Computed example of a mutant assay.
Amino acid sequence: MQCLSDEQLSDEQEERISQSDGLSIEKIVNVTKIETRRLTLRKPQCDDIDAISDLANNTAVANMLSRMPHPYGKQDAADFVNKVNKLASGNCVYAITLTMTGEIIGCCGIEKKDGREQKEIGYWLGQQYWGNGYATEAAHALVDMAFEDEEIEDLVGHCRIGNYASRRILQKSGFQFLSTGIGYCLAQNSQMPIEIYRLERAIWASLRNWPTTFEQETE
């Protein structure tokens, strides 16, 4: 296992990475760190590999995401960190950490998928950190960051049908139901039904004063 954050990746490594992370790279704004009431969102580092692999190697997490494999090992985490750090435009992908302790609890980011005009929010937490409102807090911060880019008029988000916690996070962040569709779950190597949500700039502007308290919920 290597952490090659400052080195050129081979085509083979690029292909592996493209299959093993939950987020793509797309520049939104040049923000390397975001601080909220309880969280610090920062770029993943080589020292984070063990923690990321420990959190992600969980079927309860992977089965709710599109592109997280299972099992998820240290090499998968290293590939993820390498990809994020390879490009300057990786500043929109973050490790979610608790400000008080510095411990990593998950990852999040804003991406643009191939063939789509809209940028999409994504997030996941280690199971032991569910139920504390951390994902909602991180989502609010990401949304605010994204709309600092004046060219962005809307964002999309999706969740697996039946993932009520993720749906609630999107709703609490201002996203409105758009449609249903079919996604792909890499961990299960199968298709899955999803709900698609959209947040328009005008709605975001009306909700700028996000709640300062976060209800306990399963995330």
Rank of each mutant, 00 (worst) to 15 (best):
E195F: 07
N163T: 07
L178Y: 13
S166E: 00
S166G: 06
G181D: 07
L178A: 04
I182T: 15
I182W: 02
G157A: 09
S173C: 12
V143L: 12
N189V: 12
L199N: 10
Y197L: 05
A146D: 04
L170V: 01
R198H: 08
S173T: 11
D154W: 07
S190E: 13
R167I: 04
H140T: 10
Q191R: 11
E148F: 13
E200M: 05
L142T: 04
Q171M: 09
D154I: 02
R167H: 02
N163E: 00
R160T: 04
I196N: 12
E137L: 11
Y197S: 05
I182E: 03
E200I: 15
S173Q: 00
Q191C: 15
C185Y: 13
Q176D: 08
Y197I: 13
M145I: 10
G162E: 10
F175E: 09
Q171G: 01
C185W: 14
Q191S: 10
E195L: 08
M145K: 06
C185S: 03
L170H: 04
Y184H: 11
D144V: 05
G174M: 01
G157M: 14
S179R: 15
Q188S: 02
R167F: 01
Q191K: 14
R168D: 05
S166M: 00
Q176Y: 01
L178T: 02
R198W: 03
L155W: 05
E150F: 14
A141C: 14
G183S: 15
A146R: 15
E151D: 13
I182N: 08
M192A: 14
A165Y: 00
I161M: 01
I169Y: 02
E150S: 11
G162A: 02
A146L: 10
G174I: 03
A187D: 03
R201L: 07
A141P: 14
R201N: 00
E153R: 10
R198C: 13
L186W: 05
P193W: 01
E200L: 09
I194F: 08
R198N: 07
G181E: 00
E200R: 11
G162S: 05
Y184R: 04
E151T: 15
H158M: 12
R168P: 06
Y197W: 09
C159F: 10
L142M: 09
R201S: 06
Q191E: 12
E148I: 05
A141S: 15
R167C: 01
D144Q: 15
G183H: 13
L199K: 14
F147D: 05
Q188R: 14
Q171A: 08
S190C: 12
G181C: 03
G183C: 06
I161S: 00
C159D: 07
C159S: 13
N189L: 15
F177V: 02
N163V: 03
G162P: 11
I161D: 00
K172C: 09
E151Y: 08
R201P: 06
E137I: 13
R168W: 00
E200Y: 10
E195S: 12
S166P: 03
L170T: 01
L186K: 11
P193R: 10
L155T: 08
P193E: 13
Q176I: 02
F147A: 02
F175R: 06
H158V: 03
L186Q: 13
N189T: 14
A187M: 05
Q171N: 04
D154V: 03
V156E: 03
I196P: 08
Q188T: 06
A146Q: 11
Y197D: 07
Y197T: 04
Y197A: 09
E200W: 11
G174A: 05
I194E: 04
